[in-house]
């Protein structure tokens, strides 16, 4: 079967919220942040390329490997808040 490697997903900031719940981080059962849910109407939902269960490896080129949950969540939140870019680049892995 086609083992696809990590995928780069560009999420435009098309809504007021990113609209994902993330679970996981260093020193927990889920070592890398995983998408736990996607809220309707959020930027992630409107983008349509993110799926529940996908693992976020990088945000705008910054690796989340080894980061505690709160630090990883802060990186994602700040990437969405910043006015420098009107999108966020997620490097995503499909671990099932």
């Amino acid at each position: 079967s086609g083992q696809s490697g990590p995928t780069l997903v560009r999420v435009s900031k098309s809504a007021n919220t990113l609209g994902i719940a993330v679970e996981g981080g260093a020193n927990t059962r889920q070592p890398l942040p995983r998408i736990a849910s996607i809220q309707k109407g959020g930027s992630a939902h409107l983008c349509g390329q993110l799926r529940v269960g996908q693992v976020i490896l990088e945000v705008n080129g910054m690796s989340l490997k080894g980061m505690e949950h709160r630090d990883a969540a802060r990186v994602i939140a700040e990437a969405f808040k910043t006015k420098e870019k009107d999108y966020i680049d997620f490097l995503i892995a499909d671990f099932n």
Binding site: A21, E23, G25, Q30, A36, H69, A73, I76
Partner: peptide, 15 residues
């Protein structure tokens, strides 16, 4: 006896 370390579940953050 080797003590089995069980990792804690993670928090969930809404973004």
């Amino acid at each position: 006896r080797e003590k089995r370390l069980t990792l804690p579940p993670s928090e969930i953050t809404l973004l």
